[in-house]
Structure formats: structure tokens, C-alpha cells
């Protein structure tokens, strides 16, 4: 098991599979809150679902209403389990806290590469750690 330090944005713990993109994501208009699928046609993950996965992205973008979309995904059971960013921005950070989704940021770029390849990851938003389990 490898452990990486990170900064806590939203508290809580979650373990699961990574879904990764090197492109920032807008939740308003970019993600379908009914299915959890990415619908932004210009996004590399278009058509893929972020539901019950650990979302690994550089950061967020777009409208501030995106925070409410994250909350709605949580209500619809389509939300990601946790969110890891290089640099958190207010829209996703606020949405993650509103929805009670663990979120961390400030990982080193090389850790981003390791996480992108990992199959089983735990985000510990209580202690500021990311654990990678090797099977």
C-alpha cells in the first residue's frame, strides 16, 4: 500500500475505482445529474459515468450553479464517491461539502500519474491522505 499526503477540502472517507481525466470539468451542463454520465461533447470522458467512482481531475470550471448539481447527484445516487483535484476551486469544493462527498487536493503531479493508473484507492478526507492498494 502506498500513502500520499494531500490537503482536505471536504471531510469523510471513501474507497473505490478511479475515473481520471486531465481536463477540468464543469458540472452544470457537463454532467447529467440523473445518470452520472459526462455529457460535455468536448470532454474526453464524454459518455462515461462518474457515479460511485473516485473522480480524479485537475480542477473545475464553469457556472457556480455546478455546486448545486453535485448536490443533486448525491440526492439521485449518481454522485462520485470522492473527488481528488490538483487544485480545488470554489464550485466543486462547495458542491462536495454540500453533498458530503470527501474531497482532497494539492497532490503532486507525479502522484496524479500514479493515481490515474491505480485500481483501488481510498480518499481519507479526515486525515488528509490518499491510499493506493496494490492487489
Amino acid at each position: 500500500m502506498q500513502v500520499f499526503k494531500c490537503r482536505v477540502i471536504s471531510r469523510g472517507k471513501a474507497r473505490g475505482k478511479i475515473i481520471h481525466s486531465s481536463q477540468p470539468l464543469s458540472f452544470l451542463g457537463g454532467v447529467d445529474p440523473d445518470t452520472g454520465k459526462i455529457m460535455d461533447i468536448n470532454h474526453p470522458l464524454q459518455g462515461e459515468s462518474i457515479k460511485n467512482k473516485i473522480l480524479l481531475i485537475p480542477g473545475g470550471k464553469g457556472s457556480t450553479v455546478g455546486s448545486y448539481v453535485i448536490f443533486q447527484m448525491y440526492k439521485n445516487n449518481t454522485a462520485p464517491l470522492a473527488i481528488i483535484c490538483l487544485e480545488a476551486e470554489p464550485i466543486i469544493a462547495t458542491g462536495a461539502i454540500m453533498a458530503g462527498i470527501p474531497m482532497v487536493d494539492h497532490i503532486r503531479p507525479e502522484v496524479m500519474d500514479i493515481l490515474a493508473q491505480a485500481l483501488d484507492v481510498e480518499v481519507d478526507g479526515d486525515n488528509g491522505e490518499i491510499k493506493v492498494f496494490n492487489h
Binding site: R7, I9, S10, R11, A88, E89, P90, A93, T94, I97, M98, G100
Partner: peptide
């Protein structure tokens, strides 16, 4: 608690 979490997260950012 949640409201403070939002303020602290924004403050950190």
C-alpha cells in the same frame, strides 16, 4: 458544521 466547512475550504483555496 457544514457552513464552516464551506468557509474554511474557500479560505484554504
Amino acid at each position: 458544521k457544514k457552513s464552516m466547512e464551506i468557509l474554511v475550504a474557500l479560505g484554504d483555496i
